[in-house]
Amino acid sequence: MSITKTIVNVGIADTKIVRSPNTIRTLGLGSCIGTVLYDERRGIAGLSHILLPDSSQARAGSISEMKYADTAIPQLLEMLQEQGARNMKAKMAGGAQMFQVGKGTSFMRIGDKNIEAVQDALRKLNIKVVSSDVGGNLGRTIEFDPVTSKLSIRKRNQNVFTI
């Protein structure tokens, strides 16, 4: 007898939760960050895909909380706690610098800022980052398996590896 596994897809500026044996993934991360919070014992995990570091920089009245590191990470924690998750740990990937930044451009070093913002948000919530694969200049597809607590990462023209 086999158990059917579902892969839950998380889009840009989105956050979702999964229970084992299902897995959760997000595709084509560039300067964005995928952050996984997981409760190893209970087999619950959540994944957030943020685009920008700081919601206070938003120039519009209504903000979408899942778009920003500083609002999405606490929101993700809350969602997981509501599902009974406790003692959470984190893994994260993304924050690449996709373009060589030339002079006079506002394609800012957003990857680095995103990495810092996610790390900050996790620190404030006392969540330990167990492992991460951040920076560089390649896009990433990531998938987390709550059974093994492994985050698998695929980059263009490279073999899949896990952290």
Binding site: L27, K67, A96, G139, T141
Partner: peptide, 18 residues
């Protein structure tokens, strides 16, 4: 030269703030 998601989000950063 990379995955479309990784490249295209760069072009959306500016408007994504609004």
């Amino acid at each position: 030269i990379d995955m479309a998601g990784a490249i295209m989000t760069m072009g959306l950063l500016e408007i994504s703030q609004v």
